[in-house]
Amino acid sequence: MLSDLLLLAAGIVALYAGAELLVAGAGRLALGIGLRAATVGVTVIAFATTAPELFVATIGALDVSTDIGLGAVIGSNIANIGLVLGVSALIKPLSVSETVMKRHVPFMVFAAILLVAFGANGTIGRLEGALFLLALGGFTAYLLYYVSADPAPVADTPAGGNGIEPRDVALVAGGLLALVLGSRWLVAGGSGLLLELGFSELFVGLTVLALGTSLPELAASVVGAIRGETGFAIGNVVGSNIYNVLAVLGIVALITPIRIAPSTLRFELPVLVVFTVVLVAMMGYGRRLSRLDGAALVASYVVFVFLLLP
């Protein structure tokens, strides 16, 4: 059990460090080639902070079971809304831009509905995985269209940030390496510890692994809120929730079909939809998330985790 705890702790630290390196390198690379900061938040940074879920879900599916990957994605998306945005809003009310509401939020809702629809029969197969990735391609093309139609002004790009810097490429490479190691340690330590204590693989994914893989989103969004870049904090979570479903589950389903337990269809998936709908309603009202909204989101997440306990 001690070795599992050490692996779990080392995995969380490595995932956090890897995501920080990847976020820093990928963000600077994107800004260097002329993308807007807001676009970077919902695309490059969101995809970078989704990397832990991708590695954990894939390695979990190959080494343990698909319950690990499915639980990590569902749990991470719920944690992103309830914990990440909740804590960020408690630090500083988050303003919601019209661009995020019109261009990005509908895709987040669409991804959640697509997950429920594809999983309704208890299995997400290779065909559904391919359709997830096809939808992801459509979302990416949609964003790139608006990037080319509305390029970033010179003021949006940092001084001296033009072009690709070797240092940024090294940060991305180092981040990816740390993510690979961290995900293997987190899956091994977390699953070994909780399975030894009698918890199910799905519970492991929904709690320990989901929280561990949500650390990058939490760090990025909290830092964004502290610095006053509240639009970045929201864009990061919205983008991450889209990529978690479409990219992570799409890739895992292509590798091996994902089995969904009846209990997941009755509880966890409906909870994800409810969290998503409530978040959209909060953001639509006054185009901001207040501290009261943040407190409600955090409290709801605590209740969700409590209800998961056997």
Rank of each mutant, 00 (worst) to 15 (best):
L211T: 02
V56N: 05
V87C: 13
G122F: 11
L127D: 13
V280F: 13
L35G: 11
G228D: 07
G250V: 01
N80D: 01
D4M: 08
S221V: 08
I68W: 00
I242W: 02
N241C: 05
I91S: 05
V100Q: 11
G190K: 04
I74G: 03
G212S: 02
L176M: 09
G294I: 04
S263Y: 11
Y142I: 01
A299F: 03
A72S: 15
V277Q: 06
G231F: 02
T43G: 07
P158H: 09
I251F: 14
I124C: 12
V271R: 13
R288I: 08
G212H: 02
A51R: 12
G228K: 01
D67W: 02
L289S: 00
F267T: 13
R288E: 14
L15W: 03
V278F: 08
L209V: 11
Y16V: 13
S214P: 13
L297K: 01
T157E: 13
V96F: 02
A48H: 10
L114K: 00
T49M: 14
L249A: 12
D150T: 14
A10L: 14
T157R: 15
T207P: 06
L292N: 05
E229W: 10
G69R: 09
H104K: 05
V222Y: 00
A210P: 09
L269F: 04
G231T: 11
A296V: 13
G32H: 00
L211K: 10
V298P: 15
D168V: 09
A10P: 08
G86K: 13
H104F: 05
Y301V: 08
V222I: 12
S65C: 08
I74Q: 00
L35P: 14
L246W: 05
F199V: 06
I260C: 12
P216V: 05
L134S: 12
L279S: 05
A17F: 05
G239H: 13
V44H: 11
L246H: 03
G119D: 04
A173L: 13
V187R: 06
V172D: 05
P106S: 07
G190T: 08
